[in-house]
Amino acid sequence: MDFRIFTEPQQGATYDDLLAVARVTESAGYDGFFRSDHYLHMSGDGVPGPTDAWITLAGLARDTSRIRLGTLVTAATFRLPGPLAVAVAGVDQMSGGRVELGLGAGWFEAEHAAYGIPFPDVKDRFDLLEEQLAVITGLWATPPGETWSHDGSHYPIVDAPGLVQPAQAGGIPIIIGGSGKRRTPALAARYAAEFNSAFTSPERTAELYAGVRAACEDRRRDPATLVLSAAQVLCLGADEATLRRRADAIGREVDELRENGFAGSPDEIVDRIGRFAEVGTTRFYLQVLDLSDLDHIEEFAATVVPQLS
């Protein structure tokens, strides 16, 4: 079981804010630092403004040394797959092979309108996602000295040189998640190293895992080769006053967080994590919304993780 810190910088964070969190993540022993890929805040005023996910991850690739780095998740609507493949492979090289790519269909319509990004209907967005996965993995797999072409309806590729080489010998791991019943598990079974269930119950997570395991079997892929992960908001408090303070800081109610996240005392959170572990979760993304509370990250590592070793 491993733990990763997951941030939402579109709510308002500078690169220095993210660097401080990433450095604590590394020093406290977590496996990785991940960030959302959004340009528009979802609450509050978003001050001091958004940052670009892959630009900030490039900086963190040089300013950290051990933790895994990636997105949860990049939207297929945001970038063309060829340039995205180049950018992600470049960040992987800069990090010495520590990058992972979470890729999804995109969902936040207001964000697309705010930044002039086309927002097709859901079927077309999944078509874009499926073809982006084919293009990105095809480019990464093309050996130097060879070329790769793709007769796609959205992204035709003609004689792309095999120069988009990640540092990781096995290729950059791809993370796919979501609650789609058919296309999401099928795409995960075909392309992903990891399937993620985000912000839902252990019971619903079990259902999603069953769907992706079945999709793996349909492709004659061993389901055990797919990492199963979950993302949950974190609100830890050794006492009720601390718990209430941290919930207030992110605009949430303690009772709601206890029901829908990893919230409460260390023992309460251990029990909640255990319920996810029972259905097959081996990796956890802890959504940290107050980036100024670095003690929060250290306390989880000191009081919860040792009980799960």
Score class of each variant (00 low, 15 high):
L101F: 07
V91G: 02
Y15P: 12
H38Q: 15
R125M: 10
E240N: 14
R244T: 15
A238I: 09
G96H: 04
D239I: 08
G46N: 10
V158C: 06
V164Q: 02
G82F: 04
E268T: 14
D239Y: 08
G171L: 05
P81C: 04
P48L: 01
T77A: 12
R4D: 14
L101G: 04
L60Y: 03
D255P: 02
L128M: 13
K181M: 10
P173I: 11
L236V: 13
L208W: 10
T64Y: 09
L163M: 11
Y15L: 14
Y285E: 03
R252P: 02
S36I: 01
A302D: 14
G280F: 05
E207V: 10
E256Q: 11
L80G: 05
I175D: 01
Q165T: 14
L286S: 04
T147F: 12
E278F: 08
R246E: 12
D151E: 15
L69E: 03
F108T: 01
R244D: 15
A87Q: 15
D16Y: 07
W148C: 01
R283T: 12
A238S: 15
I172M: 08
L243I: 11
G104N: 09
M42P: 00
D159E: 15
G97P: 07
A224C: 07
R68H: 10
D17M: 01
R66M: 01
G70A: 06
R258C: 12
D52K: 11
T7P: 02
A188K: 11
F33D: 04
L294T: 07
E207G: 01
L236W: 12
Q168W: 11
R246V: 13
E240I: 09
R275I: 00
D271M: 04
V88E: 08
R246D: 12
S36G: 05
A188M: 09
A114W: 06
D248H: 10
A167L: 07
Y30M: 01
A87H: 08
E131V: 05
